[in-house]
Design a protein around this nucleic acid. Structure first.
Lengths: 108, 108
DNA sequence: CGCATGTGCAACGCTGGAGTTGCACAAGGG
DNA sequence: CCCTTGTGCAACTCCAGCGTTGCACATGCG
């Protein structure tokens, strides 16, 4: 199986990393460039760049040019969408849980 | 930073792995022992055991003895709790998003 | 224009996590 | 009681992902 497809939700993987989470939080506060982030966070610029690439891939971050630097900012819509997805999953689990409970009860 | 604390949410890491997701889904359908799961899924029993350990650690799976085998089953309450947490996070993001929007708008 | 600053690219190191194999031990079931 | 079946433990391989460093290239600011 060895983590190839991640058919479940690639977003979970993105959210699973601390650094990426930090970046996301930081960008949530205010848009910034890679170099800027590299100065504020305890990781190299390249690391930041790669994380931004991941975040951009899952659609959580958007890129925009400003002057000679490239500013990255949180993609509000996608953020909201992910939120809804999470809610959906929770709801599905609730339903599944309900099912499990029924079965358990009718067996008990 | 190197993924040590995972202060964000250890659950995300658990949910990020495909095999673990499969196990969880399978157990959601019906409780099973490690050997049983190993027969049904394309991974060794030991791999299953380790994944179950992880799932048990984050509280998503509960363990129970039955005959000479150890049956693992989904922890309904925890499942529900995680669902609520996810909703909470989504809500927080919504609020944050709202904040970002306000700032963006007042900046013009 | 030239220098400072930002980005792009490539190669590399390192660790953790996923998975495997092999064997020893435990304990019901017949 | 024995043998089948299930679990426990340990050592090992493998690799994807995080992070680094070094250098080349781009570009705007003064």
């Amino acid at each position: 199986m060895r983590r190839r497809g991640h058919h479940t939700a690639p977003v979970f993987a993105a959210l699973g990393d601390d650094t990426r989470w930090s970046i996301l939080v930081r960008l949530g506060w205010e848009p910034a460039s890679a170099s800027e982030l590299a100065r504020e966070l305890p990781v190299s610029r390249q690391a930041i760049v790669k994380h931004l690439e991941v975040l951009r891939t899952v659609g959580l971050v958007r890129t925009r040019r400003s002057g000679r630097s490239i500013v990255h900012e949180v993609e509000g819509a996608r953020l909201d969408e992910v939120g809804r997805n999470l809610r959906g999953i929770a709801a599905a689990w609730d339903r599944r849980l309900e099912g499990i409970r029924s079965i358990a009860e009718e067996r008990g």
